[in-house]
Nucleic acid binder design. Sequence first.
DNA 1: TATCTATTGGTCAGTTAAAGTCAAAGTCAG
DNA 2: CTGACTTTGACTTTAACTGACCAATAGATA
Lengths: 150, 150
Amino acid sequence: MRISDIITEQILKLLDESEESKAEIQRNEFANILGCVPSQINYVLTSRFTPEQGYIVESRRGGGGYIRITRVQMNRSSALMHIINSIGDLLDQATARVVIDNCLHNSLISSEAAKLMSSAISIVVMRQVPINLRDTIRAAVIKQMLLAQI
Amino acid sequence: MRISDIITEQILKLLDESEESKAEIQRNEFANILGCVPSQINYVLTSRFTPEQGYIVESRRGGGGYIRITRVQMNRSSALMHIINSIGDLLDQATARVVIDNCLHNSLISSEAAKLMSSAISIVVMRQVPINLRDTIRAAVIKQMLLAQI
DNA sequence: TATCTATTGGTCAGTTAAAGTCAAAGTCAG
DNA sequence: CTGACTTTGACTTTAACTGACCAATAGATA
């Protein structure tokens, strides 16, 4: 197994064990424990704990220095949560389409998910629902499906 | 016997031995064992383990690199179609769960899709539907969502 | 306060260890 | 003999790893 994988694993373990999703290490000590050269830690951090991958890395040099890795709550979830909350108890067909399109466009959901959501509230399905209940069901379905993707 | 046939045979053997229908090799090592040049492995993979033939090949370069060959269920669409047709106009909650689980277990749908399907017919949603209509709606939703994945 | 020093972490260029590509040469059935 | 399939190896690309050197910080000392 690669050293970089072991380092990654250990950092993830620390993050999982932390209530705050924060892992704080000392570079030299950590490298020593894992049996690698200190700069290897930097390599792993820059290749696998980037902001794009949802992590923030802070550090401090000098005596008592440290490296702190934080797993950030991608604001994807909060964005999704916001949308879910903005949907009331009713949702008409046109608005539902807009909601799905917006989520897709902002990369909050995958295109696969968008397709599935569309089919779940498709006309074929909705024909089975009494007209006066359709907006209610649509709202419930969309909200629940968005919730599943948080 | 051709080297390419031997290579093919060995990969198939690994696939058969694997529970997951996955074979993971290291190109240089594998080539060395079979007594051929490394690029010969690539030739075999591109000529006999193509997606059309029901295989997915993934790889990684660099230290600790690998090549992973996965045998995929080829008749996914027909299997899905079969399941859709087997669902009548009514589908109770328990059976729906079984349908989703079976599809997931047989890799006919992704776990993401399974989650979305479950949430689309979740209790929270179904509460909004008159009891006498629930099995109808469930059947329509599940069928339509499976159809979206063909 | 200003400066020195020990103790950290950061950077980067270079090395090693893989896999990918492609064109040329070889083989073989028809 | 010809065209399709095989085989080969030189060259390319990518990822992992290393070590020498640089930069920042805290604490001690003048």
